[in-house]
């Protein structure tokens, strides 16, 4: 099947007074229709910047330095805002991590959803738009939608704001949905309902989703594949099973070990030692080396390539080189216990 999205060797930088911040470094991946790819990784490692660069929503300080972005067979890397405006709504929709900034505080929630409906169904009658908005609000679990249609975002709790954002995103029936922490502000029962709702819509419409999340429970529920990012690079990518049951990169091991779900009562939680590197001047070797108990001498010298573990599973760590010493992952029995 043809790839819906193909990102090749993408690098994105910000020009700042202190110098060039290399937020995304040489990232490649692809995505098929109907697939959910989760991106996980340290705060500040470039997940949001990567998503925004694909949608071409970066601020003017940002620059795509190299690489290409191909959507539905069209190379949009050099597209300007004028070209994107026509395309964006048809291809992309988004749900961001912060519902308050995603919603316009001066417009009622109902009219914001209505606006999204109208953009994609120009010429729809007023009444039909209203009915569609109410249906979307019901779909995302906003009770008493007719009463709440005329309320402003500040009337809503965090969870309900995010449901409104979901309704707006779903109004356009996009090809790719970018969901940046879509369920963090929801209670776990609604969280699971929204994830299942996403899944359903996905199956029915063939929407592909790029999900950014820190919640490895959420990712386990809906991701088909997972990309692990560190300091602007994808350091491991594979199916959900491969990443959870057979992780290969020491950074992925660290993430799994830090989960409170598996912590022992009374003992401090495991944390990955040290801090992420400065993206102003990333180290020349493996950016994770100085925090990695398994680092080899070569890690400080040379960036590891993506080693193949299986047809779907790749990891950028010198531990996978055939000359590397064999190490046992610190996770018990391949499971993240």
């Amino acid at each position: 099947m043809a790839e819906l999205l193909e990102v090749k060797n993408l690098s994105v930088s910000f020009e700042t007074a202190q110098g060039e911040i290399q937020a995304v470094r040489d990232v490649s991946f692809s995505l098929k229709s109907g697939e959910v790819l989760a991106i996980i990784g340290e705060s500040g490692c470039g997940k949001s910047v990567l998503c925004k660069s694909i949608m071409k929503l970066l601020c003017n300080k940002a620059r795509i330095k190299s690489g290409s972005i191909t959507v539905d067979g069209v190379d949009i890397t050099r597209y300007r805002e004028r070209d994107m405006q026509k395309l964006r709504g048809r291809l992309f929709s988004m749900v961001f991590q912060d519902p308050m900034t995603a919603l316009n505080p001066t417009m009622t929630v109902g009219s914001q959803i209505a606006e999204a409906v109208r953009v994609h169904h120009p010429g729809m009658s007023r009444d039909a738009v209203y009915q569609r908005v109410i249906a979307l609000m019901e779909l995302v679990g906003i009770e008493r939608p007719d009463e709440r249609y005329g309320l402003y975002p500040y009337h809503f709790s965090g969870g309900m704001r995010q449901r409104s954002v979901m309704a707006i995103a779903l109004a356009s029936a996009p090809k790719i949905l970018f969901a940046d922490e879509p369920t963090t502000s929801l209670d776990v029962t609604i969280q699971a309902q929204i994830l299942d709702l996403l899944r359903d819509i996905q199956r029915k419409l063939g929407t592909a989703t790029i999900l950014v999340s820190h919640d490895l429970g959420v990712v386990a529920r809906i991701a088909d594949r997972i990309a692990v990012m560190y300091a602007g690079k994808i350091v491991e990518i594979g199916t959900a099973e491969e990443i959870y049951y057979d992780p290969r990169h020491p950074y992925t091991w660290g993430l799994m070990m830090a989960l409170p779900a598996y912590a022992k009562a009374g003992e401090p939680l495991y944390t990955i030692p040290g801090m992420p590197p400065n993206l102003l001047d990333p180290p020349k070797g493996d950016a994770f080396a100085c925090r990695n108990a398994y680092a080899l001498a070569i890690d400080y010298e040379e960036m590891p390539p993506m080693f193949k573990v299986s047809d779907t599973h790749y990891a950028a760590t010198w531990l996978l080189d055939e000359r590397a010493p064999k190490v046992t992952p610190p996770l018990r029995g391949g499971r993240n216990v």
Partner: peptide, 14 residues
């Protein structure tokens, strides 16, 4: 801490 990655979450919890 909902918007933080698991390792930073662990650090803040500690």
């Amino acid at each position: 801490i909902a918007s933080l990655d698991v390792s930073i979450q662990a650090q803040i919890i500690n």
